[in-house]
């Protein structure tokens, strides 16, 4: 069983079993593949280098849209203009945090710096946002319903399995954030 993250003398530490690390690794890899910018032909390499993407479109996948939301509500045109300037680098920021978290999964015991913890919490959050879209969590009621699923022996279909995975990542993120808040409190 995983141990909750905690804040102590070594910083923020956590412990995960090999199967749990394997699970997280594959979830992270999934989210990275969703965020990987599409390489299109005829793209201006200089524009790409500085993060511009004039051919960007609003993502069709709901989960990707939640990861990269429109910046102006009910204004597709203004949001699209903003995407052209920022979406590529936002994708890269997210992928960076996800990769950093994946690298930490090479050891049983996870020891995190402040920066590492920030990457981990953002990575777990993105993983949860994607799982929540797959589970169709639309409101607090849906979330509670999913939350009831706690027993791995109940996992009989994809949805119940996903719900258990979601609850595991929720628990892990909550323990991490509590440790981060504690560490922030100490540094104040």
């Amino acid at each position: 069983m995983a141990k909750a993250f905690k804040y102590g003398l070594k910083g923020i530490t956590g412990f995960l079993e090999p199967t749990e690390r394997e699970l997280l690794r594959s979830l992270i890899a999934d989210v990275i593949s969703m965020l990987q910018p599409e390489e299109r032909e005829g793209q201006d390499p200089l524009a790409a280098l500085i993060g511009l993407d004039m051919d960007v479109v609003e993502p069709t996948d709901r989960a990707v849209r939640r990861l990269l939301p429109n910046v102006v509500k009910d204004d597709g045109a203004a949001s699209l203009e903003f995407r052209q300037l920022t979406e590529r680098s936002l994708r890269e920021t997210k992928i960076g945090a996800l990769r950093a978290a994946a690298l930490d999964l090479d050891k049983d015991e996870i020891v995190l710096t402040t920066e590492g913890a920030k990457h981990w919490s953002a990575a777990l959050n993105d993983v949860r946002l994607v799982l929540a879209e797959r589970l169709d969590i639309r409101d607090e009621q849906d979330a509670e319903h999913v939350h009831l699923m706690q027993d791995w022996s109940q996992a009989e279909d994809v949805e119940s399995y996903l719900a258990l995975v979601y609850n595991f990542t929720t628990w892990l993120q909550e323990s991490l954030v509590q440790a981060m808040l504690q560490s922030m409190e100490t540094r104040r």
Partner: peptide
């Protein structure tokens, strides 16, 4: 606020500007 919005999206929060 646009700069903050991108940072919030980086954290995974749902942010808009108005």
């Amino acid at each position: 606020v646009e700069r903050h919005a991108v940072a919030m999206h980086g954290f995974g929060l749902w942010a808009t500007v108005e």
